[in-house]
């Protein structure tokens, strides 16, 4: 170990700071021991193609695809590895959807180079047929793991998971949808069978981690952050599973000021984030991976939970 690194570790030890930018030993990138992945994500954009109208309302001027694209493009210029994800409810909420059926939403996301998305309940608002019809405008895949789509029109159009590789870092992404009954009329989601998010997530996470050797496992969820009543949510999913590193949520339109860190069922940390709705927020997580022996990590911070 070089002296420089020792000094750094000493500094680290005296610092209890978590998630504070600008503390990372950037020289380790050059040696190839550390890989940085910049993760950007949205949810519940709800056809907000343009910024919220200037009508004196509290959201006036916020959001808009053109501003989001500019922001993402800036980050792409600064960072080597960027993954861009969406947690569903891309459709519905402005006349752009009612008139064009989701075409412009998918085109814009393709232009921004989204990597993977999952489906929200409103993505069924034009029926399965309506969704599938727009898929040629999306150059990114949809992951849907807990809907059994074998007997539905979605068959062959969505994937259970996607694996992305950034240098030596393998990232697995799967998707968990909300229970459709009561939210989506039967005829709009005909043949889609909802399966238990906990069982499916555990299965997916185990497969991605153990069979496909993913270093980082992301669940794109449209369950909702948490509820007062006893209802499946990201917080419940996090506590009852293992092998998931990060849950990127949606549905509850929750503006989280900061990513939340919870314990999973093995008392290990799970991160949960959600970026409001309407394209008014983009979540950003910069994840640093150190390639080292299983029991050794020089730069690891104690990413633990209260």
């Amino acid at each position: 170990m070089t002296l420089q690194r020792r000094t750094f570790l000493k500094q680290m030890a005296s610092s209890s700071a978590l998630l504070v930018p600008g503390m990372f030993p950037y020289h380790l990138f050059e040696s190839g021991e550390v890989t940085k992945l910049t993760l950007l994500h949205t949810n519940d954009v709800h056809s907000r193609v343009e910024p919220f109208p200037d009508d004196g309302g509290r959201n006036a001027g916020r959001g808009g695809a053109a501003k989001r694209a500019q922001l993402i493009s800036q980050i792409r210029q600064e960072e080597k590895h960027v993954i861009l994800l969406d947690s569903g409810d891309i459709f519905q909420g402005t006349p752009y959807f009612n008139f064009f059926g989701g075409e412009i939403e998918f085109k814009l996301m393709s232009e921004m180079q989204y990597d993977v998305a999952t489906m929200g309940n409103h993505d069924f608002d034009a029926g399965i047929e309506g969704f599938v019809k727009q898929l040629p405008h999306a150059n990114f895949p949809f992951v849907v793991s807990n809907y059994d789509v074998n007997d539905s029109g979605l068959y062959g159009h969505v994937l259970p998971y996607v694996i992305k590789q950034y240098e030596d870092v393998k990232v697995g992404v799967f998707g968990i949808g909300i229970e459709l009954e009561g939210l989506v009329p039967d005829k709009m989601c005909q043949g889609v069978v909802y399966n238990d998010p906990i069982a499916v997530s555990q299965n997916m996470a185990n497969r991605l981690r153990n069979d496909y050797n993913c270093d980082y496992v992301i669940c794109l969820s449209h369950l909702g952050y948490s509820y007062r009543e006893d209802r499946m949510s990201d917080v419940i999913l996090a506590a009852n599973t293992s092998n998931i590193d990060l849950i990127l949520g949606g549905h509850t339109h929750t503006f989280l000021e900061q990513v939340q860190i919870k314990k999973n069922k093995l008392q290990k940390p799970v991160f949960i984030n959600q970026a409001g709705w309407g394209g008014m927020m983009v979540g950003r997580l910069d994840i640093y991976f150190e390639n080292n022996k299983k029991t050794k990590c020089q730069t690891c911070k104690n990413l633990f939970v209260e």
């Binding site: 695809a65 922001l71 270093d215 980082y216 990513v259 910069d286």
Partner: peptide
């Protein structure tokens, strides 16, 4: 065999407000 440790995570949830300019091509 080596593994990829998640060493650190930095986070900022960015508000897309009127401070950002629009991308002309979009």
């Amino acid at each position: 065999k080596t593994v990829q440790h998640v060493a650190d995570v930095e986070n900022v949830n960015i508000r897309v407000d009127s401070a950002y300019v629009s991308m002309g091509s979009i």
